[in-house]
Design a protein around this nucleic acid. Structure first.
Lengths: 221, 221, 221, 221
DNA sequence: AATGAATGAGCCTTCATTCAT
DNA sequence: GATGAATGAAGGCTCATTCAT
């Protein structure tokens, strides 16, 4: 009615925005329907239930989020370059403030942090492939690392990135809004990449000034 | 009545568990009251409203969480040792699976991820002091680092630790429950500490096997 | 469903009766819904809130009260005849004991005495037109009277009539139920009309027996 | 505590103000107790129930209202002078805007309009004596009038006065706040007194300008 | 003499859902 | 294909009241 899209498509879009902004509990199907001038029974008619609507929204988020993925761009160059590209790409999503038209990443991240039954599909189709790609890059750097070590390494990379979404508002209050604003995509890509590469021995340590005191890792306990 | 504690205290305990387990929205004051055999008006009598009960629960969580803090134990030893102690301590909270009696950490972390008005007090009284301590440790390692860099370093440490709470269930499905179980407190303390110390030049890089190819950090873009 | 009317219409009817009988505060939407075998959420569905239901009931009262208005019947005959007709008509409403089917006047009078936000519409659409008509009649009698005097005259007429609603039960107890019953529509119409006409010089004073001692109005203070 | 008065006396005072301002339903005993720093159980302790507190407040209102009554001042002078004094005195109460310390009249008038069980005592001890006094004055003017006629006359006097309390806010909106303000105690005393005296043949009709066309009261029907 | 604690009934409202059309 | 009407459950909250101290 208000656009050329079908009611179902417009419902899905509105639902995505609401769920991304408020979370599953606080989002109300009535408001979602109101936003697209649909009857409050429309959700149950088209999707069966609120829960199924949510699942569809999460899958739609994944679908849209994947389309723009530069498929094999991560396999070119040195591992270090690949890692930088990966971090840059991931951080781009993490730092994107969710506009009305960019709820996709917000919803997927929400699902990572607070998984619902919808996450099973999400893990299988969206998260796992990307995680495997990161593990692949890291395996290129540490060919002999056991799976457990590789996983921990990958989590270290992901955790650093994700933190800027997870604890955004707390962090902002912690360091002040002024400083926090300077932590933009470029700066953080540089920082996290350098941090990881240094840890992996692919770049000099961040503490350039200090005399590199290489302690025995065991003795410091 | 049914126990030695006062009704108010029992309400606070039950509320903490409910809020930690279900979040603010899904938790119901009726169920909280039922759990301690109190009337559903008891919350409003003792705390004024659901929201104030939540704030009280968060503060209580902080209070109990702080009691076991080894005040100045972080200032002894080398910076590397201090950092390891910090990570060990932090991870201890993060990995603690919330039993009925350990809702405190779960609630605080929930508040970090989805801050409510209650977070202001939490930041001021619990999070900021701990964050400043970490920054202090890092400043000991990198005396000349600008505040922005110090913040980013601190976030890198915290982000790696917090990830095991934030994305716990997703991660578990990602690497398999079997492997995930081996990522226990000791292993992760070792891993994250080594990772950070290496990045800071206080320990050898994790990639012991590989020939330490130190690239120019700029050329890898 | 249980009758030919729609649920919304039946709700409005029941609400009118309840509000008229108990007032806004004491009336409960649950009881209103029960009376028409509707779910307690029906009011919110059809009217949005208790307050809006009340406003609708007041407007409905006005609507039904106006339908039976003999439009321009007040403009025929002498001013004295017009005034008598006005008083007769007004008293007719005032004295009507509110059965279940005559809650309309009761509700409007309640709103006059204890105005709520709903009264704004009521004044504009129901009370003011009638008041202006009375002022018009009085202006026909006293063409040179200033607006203030005209208003006071109108209030004198209205006040005498309204008193039999406002202070009904107190008055009844004051003079005894037996005597009070004889104060019916005809008697009171005669009385108030004569009283006003005499005061305005359009009829002989009520005190027919007494020798008309016309004092200087100032000297009696 | 806050003053030398007993808690019970302070409760009664606060209750009077609340009841006068909000009515029985909307007034809450909790707020009444809060205002005098008493426990919310104090009302039930001192008065037994909310209803009994209300009755006590009404009686207290009557008590305080009567003290300042110029007992026999109404029996001096001519009936016209007596009537003027009566109207002046009554209007004085009616027009008094209820301050915190003048809730007595407001509460009594409220009880006149919406009687509760408390009104029985009020009628017997406060309203009836005053009403009888007015009837006495009117009997002095119309010695031969039957009781019914005397009652109607008295109601005409009272009704005109009371209207400025009953329909105050509606009237104000009807004629405009500016004009309504000029309807002060002096003007209204003059107006109503003149109106009544003229109707009773004790003063010239208000319509001085018009030629006194005395119609046959029957022919105007 | 007075109170803090606790209660149970009731309030209005919101919710996701169902059903007949 | 889609909707307006209606529902039952549950929500948080306020109330006057009670009871043991």
């Amino acid at each position: 009615m208000s656009s050329g899209e079908t009611t179902k498509a417009r419902l899905l879009e509105a639902a995505g925005e609401e769920f991304a902004a408020k979370g599953y509990e606080k989002a109300s199907i009535r408001k979602i329907c109101d936003r697209v001038n649909a009857n409050c029974a429309a959700v149950n008619y088209h999707f069966g239930s609120k829960e199924q609507l949510y699942v569809e929204a999460v899958l739609e988020a994944h679908r849209c989020g994947t389309e723009m993925l530069p498929e094999s761009a991560f396999q070119e160059g040195t591992p270090a370059q690949q890692l930088r590209r990966y971090i840059h790409h991931f951080l781009g999503h993490v730092l994107a403030i969710s506009h009305e038209n960019t709820w996709h990443q917000a919803l997927m991240l929400r699902e990572m942090i607070q998984p619902t039954p919808a996450s099973e599909v999400l893990v299988r189709e969206a998260i796992r492939p990307r995680f495997e790609r990161l593990v692949g890059i890291l395996r290129g750097v540490c060919p002999e690392a056991e799976p457990r070590k590789l996983s921990a390494l990958a989590f270290s990379v992901v955790g650093q990135c994700l933190h800027y979404r997870v604890a955004r508002s707390i962090s902002e209050r912690l360091v002040g809004a002024e400083l926090y604003e300077t932590l933009d995509l470029d700066f953080l890509t540089d920082h996290i990449t350098s941090f990881c590469l240094a840890a992996l021995g692919l770049a000099p340590p961040l503490n350039l000034a200090g005399e590199a005191v290489v302690n025995d890792p065991v003795s410091i306990r």
